[in-house]
Amino acid sequence: MREQLLVLQEQALVDLAEAQGDALDAWRVKYLGKKGELSLALRSMSKLSAEERPVVGQVANTVRETLEAAYANKFADWEAKQAAIQEEKETLDITIPGRTSGVGAEHPLQKIIRRIEDIFIGFGFTVEEGPEVEWDYYNFEALNLPKDHPARDMQDTFYLSEELLMRTHTSPVQARTLEKRRPEWPIRIIVPGRVYRRDDDDATHSHAFTQVEGLVVGKGVRMSDLKGILLTFAKELFGENQEIRLRPSFFPFTEPSAEMDIRCIYCGGEGCSTCKHTGWIEVLGCGMVHPRVLEMGGYDPEEVTGFAFGMGVERIAMLLYKIEDIRQFYQNDLRLLKQFASLPE
């Protein structure tokens, strides 16, 4: 009987090795089913003697366990193989592009404005705005530029009436903010916005362009603070090793006035065509708020002082992104704009 069981086991394992698919199920029925061979063999155990029965019973159990384990293994293999076949059938060309609604591009000027805003917000500044159609008073007079002042020549102006004009700079928001906040200080604001000059459009001139203005008013504000904040700003925007220099200049609403240059970001100061071989690039005008402007805004220049600065966003974008024609910012050619979907910060 024992031998009989072992022969059965051997035969079953041989059969199992060859079974595939449906045959596998048939094998299970044939050997392990209720009416399978193993069951049949066990049924004849009743003929055995009381001594033999437990011994053979144990063999029979071992045989069952062996066959069941073998079957489970084999079945798992087969299932895995089947799954592999199925997946093989379902295989995709994973090099085909994915489905997307696309990544929209940020306009380069918006990107620069956002960066500048974030830098100054980090310094404790808030963002102010003002109208693009402005009164002569705020655009000129409140900034120490009375009617017929020769410095008005610097800015050819679009007029809507004798007194209404398209603002030529974001500086009127300085005057508006002083008027609104007086007599409170500190004032720490930046003002991004669109401005207009009556220039024919060409590669370097645009009748509309963008400025970011800054104004700080408070007790004991010094020109050295202006330099400090501009240096930090330049490092944030142009790189950790950036240097700046201030040169004397003139704006009617600041005194002393200065231009800020940065080290040429292309040649690092060696001299190239972008920096006209000077090693420096002018990016910003600034100075200490003129006492007249503070007075007109309702502040006592003996009590508070301030500084202001203003920069052209297009100019900075042209430098940073190597855009050579200012008109491209307003042409909205998707071939250019789409590049700004992924350009790094």
Partner: peptide, 30 residues
Amino acid sequence: EDMIEEFARLAGFDRIPSTNLEGVLSHGGL
């Protein structure tokens, strides 16, 4: 102020140090 500018430019703007704003902290933001 006009004289201060004359002095500053004759001294050279390079002599102006870089300092940090002092006084009241302000809260920046949008």
